[in-house]
């Protein structure tokens, strides 16, 4: 496996979606290649930072309007 091939398989590897042979080659390459080890680390860092992005919120007006709509919805 080349580095150029390795970088295209990172998400499939993280998802556990590689077949057994490819996963073995991927791990063997990782063990021997500092560049790809760093690439994988940076990929993981990127993913975890995406998970830290601040939440957006509904405006207070919209929230109030929706709570009103829920309260006033005719139920049998």
């Amino acid at each position: 496996m080349t580095c150029e091939e390795f970088v295209e398989l990172v998400t499939a590897f993280l998802e556990g979606a590689l077949d057994e042979d490819t996963e073995r080659d991927f791990v063997a390459h990782l063990a021997e290649c500092p560049g790809c080890e760093r690439y994988l680390d940076q990929f993981r860092t990127t993913i975890s930072e995406l998970g830290e992005l601040p939440p957006e919120t509904l405006s207070g007006d919209t929230r109030d309007r929706l709570l009103d709509a829920f309260r006033n919805f005719p139920r049998a």
């Binding site: 080349t2 580095c3 150029e4 091939e5 290649c33 500092p34 560049g35 790809c36 760093r38 690439y39 940076q42 860092t45 990127t46 930072e49 995406l50 830290e52 992005l53």
Partner: peptide, 22 residues
């Protein structure tokens, strides 16, 4: 062939990282 010419530079991440990602 197909191997890194130069390995990716290590990252030194500051406070702006989140904004860059966003």
């Amino acid at each position: 062939p197909g191997h890194w010419r130069e390995v990716p530079e290590p990252w030194v991440l500051g406070d702006e990282f989140r904004h860059v990602v966003a």
